[in-house]
Simulated assay, not measured.
Amino acid sequence: MEAKGAAASDRSVKYLKGVQSELKKVVWPTPKQTVSYTGFVVVFTLLAVIAITLLDTVFNFGLHQYLR
């Protein structure tokens, strides 16, 4: 039974070393880029919310007119 535990432990260590190796290759964004990307996401989300709200209002109005 210990052989299986040791093999699993070896695989875990090998996996974690691989993860560490890959993380060293990652090009992380600068703080300025992070703020810029976050601002883009917030603005895009607000625009999507506005568009969906407008469509919902128009369809709701049309449905009420149709049901009268």
Rank of each mutant, 00 (worst) to 15 (best):
M1Q: 10
M1I: 12
M1Y: 08
M1R: 06
E2V: 04
E2M: 07
A3F: 12
K4F: 15
G5C: 13
G5W: 13
A6D: 14
A6G: 05
A6Q: 15
A6I: 15
A7G: 03
A7S: 14
A8W: 05
A8R: 09
A8F: 10
A8C: 06
S9P: 00
S9Y: 08
S9G: 10
D10S: 12
D10K: 07
D10F: 08
D10V: 07
D10G: 06
R11L: 10
R11P: 02
S12L: 12
V13H: 10
V13N: 07
K14P: 01
Y15T: 08
Y15V: 03
Y15K: 06
L16H: 13
K17C: 14
G18K: 08
V19K: 09
V19Q: 11
V19H: 05
Q20T: 13
Q20E: 15
S21W: 09
S21R: 14
S21K: 15
K25W: 00
K25F: 00
K25Q: 06
K25I: 02
V26Y: 03
V26N: 00
V26C: 00
V27A: 15
W28H: 07
W28P: 00
P29S: 05
T30Y: 00
T30V: 01
P31G: 03
P31N: 07
P31R: 03
K32I: 00
K32S: 07
Q33E: 11
Q33H: 04
Q33A: 03
T34R: 00
V35M: 03
V35S: 06
V35L: 06
S36G: 05
S36E: 15
S36I: 11
T38C: 10
G39H: 13
G39P: 02
F40D: 09
F40L: 13
V41L: 10
V42E: 07
V43F: 12
F44N: 09
F44L: 12
L46N: 01
L47M: 11
A48W: 09
V49D: 00
I50L: 05
I50F: 06
A51T: 04
A51V: 03
I52C: 10
I52H: 09
T53D: 02
L54Q: 08
L54P: 00
L55P: 04
L55Y: 11
D56H: 05
D56Q: 01
D56E: 02
D56V: 04
T57S: 10
T57F: 04
T57V: 02
V58R: 03
V58F: 12
V58S: 00
F59G: 02
F59E: 02
F59C: 08
N60I: 04
N60H: 13
F61I: 14
F61G: 06
F61P: 01
G62H: 10
G62M: 13
G62L: 14
G62W: 13
L63V: 12
L63R: 15
L63T: 12
H64F: 03
H64D: 03
Q65L: 12
Q65N: 04
Q65W: 04
Q65A: 03
Q65R: 07
Y66C: 02
L67P: 02
L67F: 09
